[in-house]
Simulated assay, not measured.
Amino acid sequence: MDMNERRTWNDNHKKLKQILVRPEAHNEVIQLFLSHHLLLHASSISQTNYTTLEDKLLKGLHERLFRQYPVPNPDTNNSIAWHLWHIARIEDMTMNVLVSDRNQVLFSEDWLTKMNVPLTHSGNDMQEEEIADLSRNIDINSLLAYRAAVGRRTREIITSLKPGQFIMKINADRIRRLFEENAVMEKSKWLADYWSKKNIAGLILMPATRHNFLHLNKSIRIKERLQKKLD
C-alpha cells in the first residue's frame, strides 16, 4: 500500500462512516467494508492482488526486528510482535463477543498453545516485563496464522449482518463476557466502558478497521527506523 492507496483508504473510511447507519445502503456498506478490511490483513486471506499493509510490514522483516523491545520510536516503545498480537486480540474480542456473541477465535484450535502466549487479554496496560516476555517468546508463524483466522471470521460476521443491525447498541451481557473470559483486565475497565457506549457501526469503524490501520502503520514506522539503524 503506497501513499496514494493510504489516502484512498482514508477517503473510503470517511465514506464508510457516512453510510454505515443507512439501512438502504446495506449492500454497499458490506462491499465497501470487505474491500476496506482486506487491505489490513495479509493478501492471502482474501486472495487479493493488492499489496496490503500487513504485506508491506512483513516483507523483508527480520525476526530480530519483529521481536525487538523496547523500540526507539517517539509514539511507542512496544515491539512489532506486540502490536500484531494486540490488534488481533482486539479484533477477535470485539467482533466475536460484542458484535456477534460468538466464541472468540482465540479459544478454537488451541491458539494460545500454538502462539506460546499465556495471556488472553487485550494487551492494554501491560507491564514492561510482560511485553518483553511476549515479544521474546511468541511464535511468529502462529501469531500470523491466528491474525489471519481472526480476519476471516470478521469478514464472515460482517457479511452475515442484516440491514438495520449496524445501529444496534452493544449488549451489556456481552461487555460482562469480556471480563469473564479475561479478554479485558479489570485495570483496563476503561476500554470496556468505551466500547459499551458504541453501536456495531462504531466497533466496525475503530477496532475492525481504523485500529488495525493505525497499529500497522505504527509497526511499519518501527520497521523502517530499526532498518535504518542497521544500514
Rank of each mutant, 00 (worst) to 15 (best):
L53F: 03
D133H: 07
L32E: 04
N77Q: 14
T52E: 02
P74H: 09
D173E: 13
N182K: 14
E63S: 15
E24W: 09
S108C: 13
D125F: 11
D55T: 06
S46W: 06
V29T: 08
P118Y: 02
R136L: 14
E54P: 05
K189N: 11
L61T: 06
D75F: 15
T51D: 10
Q104N: 13
S196E: 10
D55H: 05
T113A: 14
R174M: 09
E181T: 14
R155A: 11
P70Y: 04
P163T: 06
E181C: 11
A25M: 15
F66E: 05
S160T: 08
I170F: 07
Q47E: 14
V105E: 07
E130K: 09
R64F: 09
T120D: 05
T113Y: 11
G60S: 04
R147N: 03
H62G: 10
N103Y: 06
T113N: 15
K162E: 14
I204T: 03
S35E: 09
G164H: 08
K59D: 10
L61N: 00
Q68I: 04
L161H: 04
N96H: 08
T154L: 03
M185A: 13
M206E: 15
S196K: 10
P118I: 00
N49P: 09
Q18W: 05
R155F: 03
T48E: 09
F66W: 07
T120V: 00
Y146H: 02
K223M: 00
N77L: 12
T94C: 13
M1R: 01
L98I: 02
D231A: 14
A148C: 09
N199F: 00
E129G: 07
K218R: 12
T94Q: 06
P207G: 08
L134F: 00
A25F: 09
S142F: 02
W85H: 10
K197G: 06
L161A: 02
N73V: 15
V99K: 06
Q18E: 15
R155M: 13
M115I: 02
